[in-house]
């Protein structure tokens, strides 16, 4: 019989917890940069100016996304820690409220009241086990939920950079104005499809291509909208100049 090493599985779950930052960062990096390229290509005629602006946008975006992810995760962790502290103080003062609460939760999950009572009574012999089980079952709180703000920020920033490079690199390498944007969009489309497919693979889905198509559709809509907005505001640039 195949066995699962819990420690290894736990490490895997911890690694997978960064998947949100990776997918969000890559997707945002690809879409934002592709959107900037499309928008500027519609508004500005010089290839180098467009590339420079997209580079600046990429740097600012990566820093902003990284900082945002760090601050967001930190704020979330602080709020959750404060809540956990309150819950633990309450549990220490009135352990029976935790026992009753956990018993109710186990009953809701299908255990008979009698069986749930025995489980909770057994857990009560080890206060730490009772506490952590109650936190997870009653409040959905656990160590993993607290996250790692610094890591989240770094992962998000790097993911954004990686995503941004995808449309930017072909755009910068192909200087022929006829093909630069097309190459960037093609790379964007492949990458977004790939990210969607990768997400489907991680989720063990059989219809991974569907995830890829979804990402791709969003990209096409965003790119089309960006290009349309660029075209719409280009007369304003001409007026200001």
């Amino acid at each position: 019989m195949a066995t699962v090493d819990p420690a290894e599985k736990r490490r895997l779950f911890e690694r997978l917890s960064s998947i949100r930052e990776i997918v969000f960062g890559v997707q945002d990096g690809v879409l934002t940069t592709a959107g900037v390229l499309c928008g500027l290509s519609g508004a500005v005629s010089q290839h180098s100016q467009v590339a420079l602006a997209a580079l600046a946008s990429t740097a600012a975006g990566a820093l902003s996304m990284g900082a945002g992810a760090y601050l967001g995760a930190r704020a979330e962790a602080e709020v959750l820690r404060a809540e956990l502290h309150l819950v633990r103080a309450d549990a220490a003062e009135k352990p029976y409220t935790v026992q009753e609460g956990l018993l109710d939760e186990l009953c809701k999950e299908g255990l008979s009241r009698e069986a749930a009572f025995r489980v909770v009574r057994l857990l009560s012999t080890a206060p730490r086990a009772l506490e952590s089980t109650a936190e997870a079952k009653m409040f959905g709180l656990g160590g993993a939920v607290l996250g790692k703000p610094a890591l989240d920020g770094v992962v998000m920033g790097i993911a954004f950079l990686v995503g941004a490079v995808v449309p930017l690199l072909p755009y910068m390498l192909i200087t022929a104005q006829r093909y630069d944007l097309g190459a960037a969009l093609l790379a964007t489309a492949f990458t977004l499809f790939g990210v969607g497919y990768f997400e489907g693979w991680l989720a063990h889905r059989s219809d991974r291509w569907r995830s890829g198509i979804r990402f791709l559709t969003i990209a096409l809509i965003a790119a089309a909208a960006g290009y349309a907005i660029g075209l719409a505001i280009s007369p304003l640039g001409a007026t200001a100049g």
Binding site: Y96, E100, L103, E114, A116, F117
Partner: peptide, 16 residues
């Protein structure tokens, strides 16, 4: 008996 004490309680298999 002279007096009857009736005490209601919420549930069996609980902790209080």
């Amino acid at each position: 008996s002279e007096l009857v004490l009736i005490f209601f309680y919420p549930r069996d298999f609980s902790f209080i």
